[in-house]
Amino acid sequence: MTSTYPATAMLQVLPAPGPRPVPAGNRELVEALRRGPFHTALHAAIRASGLSLEAIQRRLRNDGHQISLASLSYWQRGRSRPERPSSLAAVGSLERILRLPAGTLITLLGPVRPRGRWANHVPGSVSLEALGHSDRSLRVVSTKIDPDANQRLESLSHHQDLRLDATGTGYRLTTRRVVRARADGADRMTVMMVADCADAPPFTITAGLNCRLGRVVHDEEEDVTAAELIFHRPLRAGESFLAEYEVEVSDLPEQVTRFDVGFRQPTKDCVLQTVFHASAIPIRCYPLWQPQNSQPNPLDHELRIETSGSAHVAFVDLPAGRYGLCWEWN
């Protein structure tokens, strides 16, 4: 199993969730909210509400948001879009004022566009290709999700706990990440996942503390899935944030033999733990580190499997690359 975070995780294939519920009875609005872009959906929602821009502005002001009439007009015409933290916060109030399902408009905005020096390369980072993703998959993913979204975040801490079932063919993976915004407005992180065996069944991803599941894109040909985890609020530059999520899969056609995560940029600390079922303990377990996907693993010392059936590896001040554990069943 591998994961990548632009920091990449190889996990099993995540099916795209169904469309978000939208108001019925107005075909134009329904289609705009499903397909976007943001300004088209906003324009349709304003028309359907029957409210004037002045009335919307008053209601936003009552909610504590100072948005000018010119900004509202530009937003619905596509001449500009909400990007500052204060503007993104106002979009949540707009959804309520226009009687839309929570998250409908903010999801259509997509990742915040980087500005200034943060639009460029992050020191010490590597490409997604270096972590094993093909140009083709990146093109498929990029149609709906920005694979560089995590470059707007500094990775401070990454903890993952993998719990295998009694057969070694199913697991629950719990992830806790602490990040810090490199610029104002960062409001999501991206996880890219690759099925690590042929004919792998779909897995279920559940957003946990401080985030929700956004858009999901699946490249069926290469079994690559990218998913957005959207924070409950946009961050300010320098602000840290903790988010959690879980992934579950069962009935894989073969036993899982590795668990790794790929980071595009340096990370402060990473702790990875595998907990084996009491009836399925491997004979040995090793740490894994690959500076790039094509390079061999230079770590060959054996890890202790505790009496609890767990083994872990901890890294501090780690450069970009792949890190994890691998084990032998026989």
Rank of each mutant, 00 (worst) to 15 (best):
T2A: 14
V316A: 14
P282I: 01
D219K: 09
Q290R: 15
P123V: 04
E222S: 11
V216D: 06
I305E: 02
I97G: 02
D146E: 11
A7R: 04
E302M: 14
T274I: 15
Y286I: 03
R188I: 01
V140Q: 12
N120D: 09
S3Y: 11
V178R: 15
G18L: 15
S125G: 02
E254W: 06
T104E: 09
L105C: 06
L53P: 08
G208E: 10
L29W: 13
V249H: 02
T143C: 03
Q12G: 14
A320E: 07
T190K: 02
T206E: 13
G168L: 03
I283M: 10
L29M: 10
P319R: 05
H39A: 10
S87Q: 14
F38T: 06
H301D: 12
H218F: 07
A280D: 06
D199C: 04
P21A: 00
N150P: 00
R163H: 11
I230D: 03
S157I: 01
T4D: 05
G124K: 11
V91C: 04
A237C: 14
R113I: 13
C270K: 05
S71K: 11
H232M: 09
Q57R: 15
P82A: 03
L153S: 11
V13P: 09
G36D: 06
T143Y: 02
P287D: 04
R81D: 00
H301T: 11
T175W: 00
M193N: 11
A45G: 08
P19M: 08
G103E: 08
R96M: 03
L252K: 07
P15S: 10
L94S: 02
P234Q: 04
W329A: 05
S125R: 14
S49C: 04
F315N: 02
E328D: 15
A149P: 04
P23T: 10
T204D: 13
M1G: 13
L33I: 07
A207L: 08
F241L: 02
V275E: 06
P201T: 06
I145R: 06
L60T: 05
L128N: 09
D251C: 09
R264A: 11
H43Y: 10
P82C: 06
A314W: 07
I281V: 14
T190R: 10
L33R: 10
Q292S: 13
P147C: 05
G185V: 12
S93A: 15
D317M: 04
F38S: 08
E306K: 02
P147M: 03
S240K: 09
V112N: 02
G64D: 10
P19E: 15
Y171G: 00
T274S: 12
D269W: 05
A9R: 10
T40W: 09
P282W: 05
R20M: 13
S240P: 14
A311V: 15
V217D: 07
G36K: 09
L156I: 14
A166M: 04
P201A: 04
S80Y: 01
S279I: 02
H133D: 01
Q292Y: 01
V216L: 03
V141N: 07
L53V: 08
T225N: 02
E254T: 11
L94M: 11
E83C: 03
D161C: 07
D148K: 13
V141G: 04
T257H: 07
E95P: 11
L252R: 05
Q12F: 12
L153A: 15
